[in-house]
Design a protein around this nucleic acid. Structure first.
Lengths: 207, 207
DNA sequence: CCAAAAGTGTTCTGACTACACCCATGC
DNA sequence: GCATGGGTGTAGTCAGAACACTTTTGG
């Protein structure tokens, strides 16, 4: 039996967070765990991952990548578990509330204890995310179409867990062509108007 | 059903090469393909990959890493195929000759047409190998204990497919601590004696 | 003496780091 | 007028790239 499991990340409130569901069935009843499940008949791995992601967040067309394949997951009835990781903008996600298992965002730094192998999978996924942030444009999936450079910098800082210099950050993302100005100024709140940016590509790409 | 498949690389004669077997059974009888097969009962994925590698080359304790998990492999009876890639020193490998499927090294640049999905898998594996060569010590698995810097440079050049500068190469591998001098000089052939080097670690590590 | 491979230093450039002040806005 | 966040330039350091000649050896 083959299962997929999806590590769905978002950045919200300045914190990198992951989507967990509370298990209503055995094993690990009452524990938090990653969303996942067995393949439906005739479905490909990727299709199953996309379906799970859409089930839990309502979004598709976001960054989604295969992560690693595990075996020997304790007390699971899958012999292999293919993990994926995804990045979503939490403002766009609509978590399901009517369900018996309540999906919820959990700040990565303060995770509860999880069922199955899930800590290992999340650790591996966040390591990969941090690595890819440095040399790809993956962040495109964590922000709306238009955003300020401060928004983007906040995303980087939340994921990497460290403050960055505003000027160096700007030079980097603009210089490498990750983002470009949209030319639209904006008036907002008690602030100076800010230039808005957009990603030059909303496909995953290596810089 | 779950299968593993192993992309086994070596560098020999200045060429990056991959181990293929000629299939004696259907499907793809008579085609070349990567070594692989279904999991034996109770075996983990990694154990199956290690077994396949040892079956075909007689070596173990080499670099071996999970690569990617594929599904929908045409005309295979596995629903998912977990691929691994390995690096071996061809001087140490002892390919099996008595078998009906004859394993043989094939130069990567001039591969025959392969069965299953195997071109894709090999492409992906060699991309990953090139990437890892740049920031890890993976090459340790492609050379004997002691070697000259020219040997090592030859391995890099074969994999990356481009000539490098001797002085820059030396600075880089010594400076980053990939290798160190063993202090043993050597007399060989019609050449000046050469310093021998060894890897500072024979475990995979990030530089 | 010739072929083959080993060894060696300097200069330039581009990327990354560190660092501090002024401006426009809404309240 | 003040708090909030937006915007800007320079100097230093380091890694990587380019580049050519001399030495030892065996045949």
């Amino acid at each position: 039996m083959t299962a997929v499991v999806v590590v769905i990340f978002t950045v919200s409130g300045g914190e990198l967070s992951v989507l967990l569901i509370e298990r209503s069935g055995d094993p690990y009843r009452g524990s938090w765990a990653l969303p996942g499940g067995l393949l439906h008949g005739g479905e490909s791995l990727k299709e199953a991952a996309v379906r799970k992601l859409a089930d839990e967040t309502g979004v598709s067309d976001v960054f989604l990548e295969q992560l690693y394949t595990f075996d020997c997951i304790p007390s699971s009835d899958a012999t292999v578990v293919v993990s994926y990781f995804a990045l979503v903008d939490s403002r766009r996600a609509r978590l399901r509330t009517e369900l018996e298992w309540q999906p919820a965002w959990h700040v990565l730094r303060t995770l509860p204890h999880l069922g199955f192998d899930n800590e290992r999978i999340i650790d591996y996924a966040s390591e990969r995310l941090r690595a890819k942030l440095e040399y790809t444009n993956v962040a495109y999936s964590l922000l709306p179409e238009r955003f300020t450079l401060s928004d983007l910098q906040g995303v980087y800082e939340a994921i990497l867990g460290e403050a960055m210099d505003k000027r160096n950050f700007r030079r980097r993302v603009v210089g490498l062509g990750v983002v470009r100005e949209t030319g639209q100024l904006q008036k907002r709140g008690a602030h100076r108007p800010a230039m808005l940016y957009e990603f030059t590509s909303r496909e995953p790409m290596v810089l």
